[in-house]
């Protein structure tokens, strides 16, 4: 098998975090919530703010903790809902 074929499963595209890393982090620190994985590993902290990976992280957490996916709560949703430049918050004179 070539190394290309052996490539990891990407969970968080923005922060380039693999399934193996998520599992290892959960096991090493005994994590049980999506928010903890975010804070420790940065999965879900990237430019899309976890829109793509949170559901996958929840699934892995469920597997690792033996819980049901629905018992693993929502991560905190913080503003802004998408990246936005400082400039738009300035009044005309300050720009």
């Amino acid at each position: 098998m070539s190394s290309e074929q052996d490539r990891d499963i990407i969970i968080c595209r923005c922060e380039d975090i693999t399934e193996r890393e998520v599992r290892e982090c959960i096991r090493r620190h005994g994590l049980t919530t999506v928010d903890e994985v975010r804070k420790i590993l940065r999965a879900g902290m990237g430019l899309c703010q976890g829109k793509t990976c949170s559901a996958l992280v929840r699934r892995i957490l469920a597997e690792e903790t033996g819980k049901k996916a629905e018992d693993i709560g929502l991560p905190s949703a913080r503003q802004p809902a998408k990246p936005v430049e400082f400039g738009i918050f300035l009044q005309e004179g300050d720009r």
């Binding site: 074929q5 052996d6 490539r7 990891d8 499963i9 990407i10 969970i11 595209r13 399934e19 829109k51 793509t52 990976c53 559901a55 996958l56």
Partner: peptide
């Protein structure tokens, strides 16, 4: 939004 699937090379 669309879900992603976990398999090697999914990105």
């Amino acid at each position: 939004r669309e879900n992603m699937a976990p398999f090697p090379g999914n990105d």
